[in-house]
Amino acid sequence: MKTVLITGCNRGLGLEFVRQLVGLKNPPSKIIATCRSIDKAQELNALKSQNQNIHILELDVTNFDKYNEISEQAKDIVGDDGLNVLINNAGVTTKFTRLNMVKQEQIIENLIINAVAPIMFTKALLPLLKTAAANNASAPLGSSRAVIMNMSSILGSIEMNKKEGGFYPYRTSKSALNAATKSMSIDLKSDGILTISMHPGWVQTDMGGKQAPLKPEQSIKGMLGVLADLKVEQNGLFLQFDGKKLPW
């Protein structure tokens, strides 16, 4: 992959994606990292100061009016190469909620950030993804052409929700994102673009908490491995960070 764009890179998984991408033996020539506030993204800025292939763009994913501007800025960065990989990582979670406690604003916030934003942001960047796929038409379908990775969660699996219940805002939003992923995988395959939903595992981040069993380094290493080896047969699947297929 020559060019990559990741949303939500000020901390957690997004920041670790950037850290590991620049550390690859053959790192992408252009890594575009978005964050809500460049001034507050100290670790991301530190990485940028040491790596010329990192480009930071300021974006609050709820600001839909800025998507076209971000797309133009990304186009200026990647040039004629287009965009090989889009990682829709930015997200929000609401703590465990029972039906009698859930609030309307929690559901709406989760749906907007976790489902609506990835759909609309992908739409804005679609011309860049199509350019990359067309430029590498002789390559196998995968990250050397164009891939969209939507960061989901096992809590979005309807099949696996058998005992715990709850989590209405988060579960609903991630299930919606999974549905969008499936549609993208159908709509964009003819353009040479693969789309997957990814469960990063239960990770020690601000969202996952300190009690989580996985470190960010382990999760991201696994997901980058999945990206590197992605096959056309995996298009439209819901995958775990280690490549295991999950049920919808």
Rank of each mutant, 00 (worst) to 15 (best):
V116H: 00
Q50K: 13
K75V: 11
A117H: 02
Q73F: 13
G79D: 07
D60Y: 03
A115N: 04
I54H: 04
L47N: 09
S49K: 09
R98K: 12
L47Y: 07
N100T: 12
I54M: 01
L83Q: 06
G91T: 04
I113W: 00
A74I: 10
Q50L: 15
N110Q: 08
A90M: 01
V78E: 04
A90F: 00
I112V: 12
Q104S: 11
E72W: 13
G79A: 09
T94N: 09
T97N: 05
E69K: 15
T94S: 09
S71Y: 08
V85P: 04
D80T: 13
A115K: 05
G91Y: 02
K75N: 15
D76N: 14
G82R: 09
S71Q: 14
N53D: 07
A46M: 13
E69D: 12
T62Y: 06
I119R: 13
T62R: 09
Q106V: 04
N110Y: 05
I87Y: 01
H55F: 06
I77L: 07
L111K: 01
Q73S: 15
T62I: 09
D60N: 11
N89D: 03
I56A: 06
D81N: 14
E72V: 14
N68M: 11
I54N: 01
V92A: 08
D60I: 02
Q104K: 11
N110S: 11
E72Q: 15
I77E: 09
I56V: 11
M120K: 11
K48R: 13
N114P: 02
I70D: 05
E105H: 10
N114H: 03
G79L: 11
M101T: 08
D81E: 15
K103R: 09
I70Y: 15
L47F: 14
Y67D: 08
E105L: 08
A74N: 12
I107C: 04
N110I: 08
N84Q: 05
I54S: 03
K75F: 08
A115W: 02
V85Q: 07
L86Q: 05
Q73I: 15
Y67Q: 04
L99A: 11
Y67W: 12
N88C: 01
V92G: 07
I56C: 06
N53L: 03
H55T: 06
G82D: 06
A117N: 03
N51Y: 11
N88S: 06
V116L: 01
G91R: 03
L111W: 00
V116R: 01
E58F: 05
I112Y: 00
G79R: 09
T97K: 15
I107S: 01
Y67P: 08
I119C: 08
I113H: 00
P118I: 03
N68I: 09
